[in-house]
Amino acid sequence: TEDARKEAKKIIDNGGSPDEAAKFIKKYGLSEDQARELVKRAL
């Protein structure tokens, strides 16, 4: 979702790792793979 993508970008912009961002956005109901893909797109 757009919200999850924004959250991921915010985490990374604040110095978080892509892994942290992926873990965080899994709470939106995404699978591990979906979360990682979304983080990649957010970069």
Rank of each mutant, 00 (worst) to 15 (best):
D33I: 09
A8C: 09
A42E: 09
I12G: 01
V39I: 11
R36T: 09
A21H: 03
E32S: 06
Y28K: 01
K9W: 13
K9C: 11
G15K: 04
A42I: 15
L30M: 07
D33T: 09
D33S: 10
D3H: 13
S17L: 07
E32D: 14
A4T: 02
T1N: 12
R36G: 04
K27P: 01
V39N: 01
D13V: 06
A4I: 12
K9N: 05
A8I: 15
E20T: 06
D19M: 10
E32W: 12
K10Y: 11
I25F: 04
P18C: 02
E2G: 07
K26I: 15
E32I: 10
E7K: 06
L38E: 07
L30S: 00
F24H: 12
S31H: 02
K27V: 07
G15Q: 02
L38M: 08
K23C: 14
E37G: 00
L43K: 04
L43F: 08
F24R: 10
G16I: 06
E37F: 00
K26Y: 08
E37K: 04
Y28T: 01
A42P: 04
S17R: 05
R5M: 15
D33G: 07
E32V: 06
K26G: 08
D19K: 07
K27H: 05
L30R: 00
S17N: 06
P18K: 05
A21K: 00
L30N: 00
K9A: 08
G15L: 04
I12P: 03
S31L: 01
A35P: 00
L43I: 11
A22D: 04
R41E: 15
L38W: 02
A8Q: 03
K40P: 01
K9L: 14
I11G: 00
D33V: 09
A42K: 02
N14F: 07
F24C: 14
G15A: 02
I11S: 02
K6G: 07
T1C: 15
D13A: 13
K27R: 10
G16F: 07
G16P: 02
E32Q: 05
D3S: 11
E7R: 04
R41N: 13
K23T: 12
Y28P: 02
Y28I: 02
D13N: 09
A4Y: 10
D19C: 12
K9R: 11
D3G: 08
R5H: 10
I25A: 06
G29P: 01
K27A: 06
K10I: 06
E2D: 11
E37H: 03
G16D: 05
A21F: 14
E37T: 03
